[in-house]
Amino acid sequence: MARNKFEFEEPYLLLESKLEDLKKLSEQLNTDFSEEINHIEKRLDQMMEERYKRLTPWEQVLLARDLDRPMTRDYIRLLCSDFIELHGDRVYGDDLAMVGGIGMMGGRAVTIIGHQKGRNTKENISHNFGMPRPEGYRKAYRLLKQAEKFGRPVLTFINTPGADPGIGAEERGQAWAISEMLCGLSSLRVPIISVVTGEGGSGGALALAVADRIVMLSNTVFSVISPESCASILMRDVKRADEMAGHLKMNAQALYEMRIVDEVIEEPARQYLLDSPDFVEKLKNTINNYLDELGSLEISKLLEQRYSRFRQIGQFLE
């Protein structure tokens, strides 16, 4: 699958294209440089991989927002042998920024809910750039309650710039829809696992993240505010967003160290994630192991652990 290019990759990509030129020239000249070219190619791959290990927080924000990342529906296709998408909040409409439904995952019935972005402008308009409106959260809430009724564990996939900031969303109670999700998830009587698969934008992302286990992919972010908004409020200069991305400690590794998330799954560099067998296996194993572990707990114990998981978050002086 083709992928977007990032600014920090430019020198490497330039070298790559020069190598292509060299290959063509060597053909024209009937001279075999393949050994030398192979050597440089290997070295280039190495350099790229090393560069990916030194990503700045801002570069990670850009990677997290990449529209070529797998989206919720891709993960559903990967994980489920059968899946039926369910629609609508029964009150107002069906929000395509939030997808959800029921399916079979390795012999286990699950409910899956997640944000859905589009890959191009047309798709993004119909999915509202992955920014749910109240009806999206109310659809999700309905599916949670349904999962609870049938004792199905819940998986959520998080990838949103945030909840929709429009007039309509305000009129229909965006804040109310989100808070009911937070409260509803905190006491839902089935195991919940959240995977941050891209951008975790503020309350609109948190509404799917009150889970027993939170997993982040290594090039994803989760933040109280976008670095752009933060820079514009605090510095009155949106251009300082890259600086803010560091201060906000919003990347997967930082959040793992703060014990906000339970696990970080390493992403392969420069590859469509689901094309990497290692990545796919790691993701499947992580989810299944957590589901086994949580499924063996008594519900009261599960709820107690989930409450204290969030109850203990915070640093203050006493």
Binding site: S179, L182, S186, S202, G203, L206, A209, V210, F222, S223, V224, K249, M250, L255, M258, I260, F310, I313, G314, Q315
Partner: peptide, 8 residues
């Protein structure tokens, strides 16, 4: 994120 989690 410590603040965001206070919502939860």
């Amino acid at each position: 994120m410590l603040s965001l989690m206070q919502m939860a």
